[in-house]
């Protein structure tokens, strides 16, 4: 929710500049998958801080629980058992949730002014009281994150604990992580921290260890350290080169102003045709 109304970088369905007076530091969450033990404490902390309670599901034979993101589960651990090399099983556990893109597709697609805002610190936040429930954000998101509630038809996702961050606290998931797999700070510091981790992983035989901060969406404010940075798909289909769909860019990019202009021009063309050429009149002849 908006505590920092002066710190807005972008606002949905708004064509004039948002308030940008203050310039806070860019923040980022770094998820080091090589340190994650899949304890789901972050899921619990997220539920606790945000007062969310998902339905108790059923065991479907895998560790993922809840099965998917929902209006009540803004982060879920996704467990992937993969054989990267023959005979060497790896258990890759990815904490899934909003990536807080620097170029957020959800915000671009949203038709409701102020329902989605991007704070100057990089956090992309949904303001549900302005959400109209159209689901356009789903089409904009390259990571399949927003979920529409079946109860209130509003879209929900991770806020990166914007309320906590606004008052100088770290997000709830960071606070609770017992292994240090989750760290939070300025984006610059997080990139630096990741570099150290990647060097360490490379020494330990993960030649392709890399930071996941995809350029296609302008970089993200939630980044991963991946042991297999060359194959992000191994991690429960993390997209290799995420970008806003060209269809959404077309729809919310050029066509939106051009089509509106076209409609306006058609009306004006009619008006000016009428005042120049004039109406088509028929002389009424008397019939006998």
């Amino acid at each position: 929710m908006a505590l920092q109304s002066l710190d807005i970088k972008a606002r949905s369905a708004t064509t004039t500049p948002p308030p940008r007076a203050r310039n806070p530091v860019h923040v980022a969450k770094l998820i080091d998958i090589s340190k994650c033990i899949g304890c789901k404490a972050c899921q619990v902390a997220c539920m606790e801080w945000n007062d969310l309670r998902d339905e108790v599901g059923t065991n479907v034979g895998i560790y993922d629980n809840p099965r998917d993101l929902s209006d009540q589960s803004w982060t879920v651990m996704r467990f992937s058992e993969v054989e990267v090399e023959q005979g060497r099983l790896e258990w890759l556990i990815r904490k899934d949730g909003c990536m807080h893109c620097d170029d957020p597709g959800c915000l671009k697609a949203c038709p409701s002014p102020g329902a989605i805002v991007q704070y100057a610190n990089g956090i992309v936040d949904f303001h549900e009281e302005h959400c109209i429930g159209c689901g356009y954000c789903l089409t904009g998101c390259p990571f399949n994150i927003p979920r529409i509630s079946k109860k209130d038809s509003k879209a929900y996702k991770c806020t990166l604990c914007s309320d906590r961050v606004a008052v100088g606290l770290e997000p709830a998931c960071i606070k609770t992580c017992p292994t240090g797999a989750l760290v939070f700070g300025s984006k610059e510091d997080m990139i630096h921290h990741a570099e150290g981790r990647i060097a360490d992983l490379k020494e330990r035989g993960y030649a392709n260890a890399a930071l996941y901060n995809p350029r296609g969406v302008g970089g993200t404010h939630v980044m991963y350290v991946l042991q297999h940075g060359d194959q992000p798909e191994l991690y429960a289909n993390l997209p290799k080169d995420p970008h806003i769909s060209p269809l959404v860019s077309l729809w919310k990019g050029v066509t939106k102003p051009l089509m509106s202009l076209g409609i306006g021009l058609a009306v004006f063309a009619g008006f000016f045709h009428f005042v120049t050429v004039g109406p088509k009149e028929v002389e009424e002849e008397e019939t006998d």
């Binding site: 159209c134 689901g135 789903l138 089409t139 529409i148 079946k150 769909s245 269809l247 729809w251």
Partner: peptide, 23 residues
């Protein structure tokens, strides 16, 4: 793209195609 009744039954790529065609 009809929320909430029908859209959840279609894949997101189809929603993307549909919004553009609809517009």
């Amino acid at each position: 793209i009809w929320q909430p009744w029908f859209a959840p039954y279609f894949p997101i790529w189809l929603l993307r195609v549909a919004v553009v065609i609809h517009a």
